[in-house]
Simulated scan of single mutants.
Amino acid sequence: MKQKPIEIVIADDHTIVRQGLRKLLEEEECLKITGEAMDGHQAIQKVFELEPDVIIMDIAMPVLNGIEASRQIKQSALKTKVIILSMHDHTRYIRELLSIGVSGYLLKNAVSHDIIKAIKAAVKGETYLSPAISSRVIEDYVGMNQKTSQDELYDTLTNREREVFQMMVEGYSTKKISEILCLSPSTIKSHRSNIMGKLKMENISKLIQYAIHLGIIDIQM
């Protein structure tokens, strides 16, 4: 009897990356791409709609980044495994994503064999890391790295506040954020106020600088 293929969703804001990854993975008979997403919100929607076995997630996506999307997926009752495929090897990303419970973290320079190996490991309940990431994890624990006070402030934000925070620093207006999240403008204004208070920020300029420090947005934006 033929084994059921592993169903996968690919989440990355670059079309060429999604297309390349789809072509690579579909060469394996045991793998099947069932959906794609361009940002974190779409990634969550696809997971709830399709309930794939695995979602391969980029970190630096607009509207909602891969970290927050992974967090919401892992907090759900769904059994979808999350594998991070990113160009970033920031220690904070690695630490937070592993604490969330992702099943793999690979860099985008990983060879195809590693990606396929990570997928197969994930469905078996195992965790797979790129060699470079494994080294960073070991260094982090050996060095007893502690969170900075700025990281701790970010941890005080709720999931919804983190969503609003990212869109704020990406330049979305209160009206646009309310439309995306299907919330009233007054609710978004309340979230904005809470965010500024919790992060102890006086203006949007400092908030953007803080977001760059955390890696929420890239300096090139």
Rank of each mutant, 00 (worst) to 15 (best):
A43M: 11
R162Y: 00
L21D: 01
H113V: 15
R95H: 08
L129K: 14
I94K: 00
K175T: 10
G35A: 02
V47C: 12
S135L: 08
I67P: 00
V137C: 07
I100G: 02
E179Y: 02
Q150R: 10
G215V: 01
E7T: 15
G104S: 14
G35Y: 03
G125N: 08
K46P: 13
K175F: 02
Q150P: 00
L181Q: 04
V137K: 12
T34V: 15
I138Q: 10
M1A: 15
K175D: 01
Q3S: 14
D114A: 15
H88F: 10
I216C: 07
D218P: 00
I208Q: 15
T80G: 07
K81V: 00
L183H: 13
Q220F: 06
M221S: 08
I217F: 06
M38A: 15
A11I: 12
R95G: 01
A60F: 11
K79W: 07
N145K: 14
G20I: 05
I180T: 08
V63D: 11
S112K: 13
A11W: 12
Q45N: 14
E139V: 09
M167A: 13
T187Q: 13
I180A: 03
E202Y: 11
H90F: 03
I180N: 03
P5Q: 11
T34G: 01
L50M: 11
I10W: 02
L64S: 13
M87C: 04
E126F: 13
T15S: 10
S149G: 00
V47L: 06
